[in-house]
C-alpha cells in the first residue's frame, strides 16, 4: 500500500514536469491522447472479466472491457487523426497543401 502511494506521488510530479511544456497548439490532442491512456483500466477490466469464476464479476468485467476498449481504441485513433493534420505540413506551397488534402480525404473514407 505504502509503495503504491509512493508511486502515485512520484508519477504526479513526473506528469506535471513532462506535460506543462506541451504547447497550446497541441492541447486538444494531448487531452484526447491522455484520455486514451486513462483507458489503461482495460487491464483491470480484463482481470475482472477473465479471471474469476463468479458470474456477476465476469459480466460486470465484460461491461468494463467494452467501455474501456472504446476509450482506448477510439481515443488513440482520433488523436492520431488530429496529429496527422499537424504533422504533415510545414508552410507548404498551395499544390502541396492540396495534395495533402486529397490524401486525407482518401484516408477519411478508407
Amino acid at each position: 500500500m505504502l509503495n503504491n502511494v509512493i508511486i502515485f506521488v512520484l508519477s504526479a510530479f513526473l506528469g506535471t514536469e513532462v506535460l506543462s511544456k506541451v504547447p497550446q497548439t497541441l492541447h486538444t490532442p494531448l487531452m484526447s491522447g491522455a484520455n486514451a491512456i486513462s483507458g489503461i483500466t482495460l487491464v483491470g477490466a480484463v482481470v475482472a472479466a477473465g479471471m474469476t469464476g463468479n458470474a456477476w464479476a465476469s459480466w460486470i468485467g465484460f461491461g468494463a472491457v467494452v467501455v474501456a476498449t472504446i476509450n482506448v481504441v477510439g481515443g488513440f485513433m482520433v488523436t492520431d487523426r488530429m496529429l496527422q493534420m499537424f504533422a504533415r505540413k510545414k508552410s507548404g506551397t498551395p499544390s502541396d497543401v492540396d495534395a495533402a488534402k486529397a490524401a486525407t480525404s482518401t484516408n477519411g473514407t478508407a
Partner: peptide, 12 residues
C-alpha cells in the same frame, strides 16, 4: 500500471 498511467492523465 494503472496507478502510474492514471496519475499521469490526472496531472495532464
Amino acid at each position: 500500471a494503472l496507478i502510474v498511467s492514471g496519475t499521469l492523465v490526472g496531472a495532464a
